[in-house]
């Protein structure tokens, strides 16, 4: 199985992309499958580290949380942008000590934090396990490090570590 399909997820998403772009016909299904197989074999020449998923079931939970959070912070940032004559929010940098080491988990955390309006990933140093984020409205939460750690990091560690 691993010889034929070194990266099953990559192959499946390539096939899905091919079918979405070209429409579903048996011919395109075959061609897309061949392309996905060849491409995922080429990928194995690059020898990327294989992410291991421990618990599939929690991914849906995480996606739900992120979905709701992005909606909420969209509203919050829209309110800041519209509020008053000159938007005077207290923004600042927040440093957060992280426990997660898994690179895939960190990449997911970076994407979640940056794509949520109101927080942006600025810098991470693996030597110190310290993350620096910029927050648009610092005063809206008591402790940003608690929020990030409890809400996202714990779940991501469950999934990836």
């Amino acid at each position: 199985m691993t010889r034929v399909l070194p990266y099953p997820l990559l192959a499946a998403s390539l096939l899905a992309m091919w079918l979405l772009l070209n429409g579903f016909t048996p011919g395109h299904l075959l061609l897309g499958a061949v392309i996905a197989l060849v491409a995922s074999h080429m990928m194995s020449a690059l020898q990327p580290s294989k992410p291991r998923l421990r618990r599939w079931t929690r991914i849906a939970h995480l996606m739900g949380i992120v979905f709701v959070d992005i909606l909420r912070s969209n509203i919050a940032v829209a309110r800041i942008v519209l509020g008053g004559k000159n938007p005077q929010v207290v923004s600042g940098f927040v440093a957060i000590p992280l426990e997660m080491r898994d690179p895939t988990g960190l990449a997911f955390l970076a994407c979640i934090i940056t794509s949520t309006p109101g927080t942006a990933w600025v810098e991470y140093r693996s030597a110190d396990d310290l993350l620096l984020i910029h927050v648009l409205d610092v005063v809206s939460e008591d402790s940003w490090s608690d929020l990030i750690k409890n809400r996202y990091e714990a779940l991501l560690m469950e999934i990836f570590e």
């Binding site: 992005i70 969209n74 940032v77 829209a78 800041i80 942008v81 519209l82 000159n86 938007p87 929010v89 923004s91 940098f93 940056t114 794509s115 949520t116 309006p117 109101g118 927080t119 942006a120 910029h134 648009l136």
Partner: peptide, 24 residues
């Protein structure tokens, strides 16, 4: 709204947050 934020907010690090309204 995101683009208005790009105009109204007063420093680069604040402005980084506003285009994400448009992209999410």
């Amino acid at each position: 709204l995101g683009a208005i934020g790009l105009v109204r907010l007063d420093s680069f690090y604040k402005r980084v947050h506003s285009p994400t309204l448009g992209t999410t």
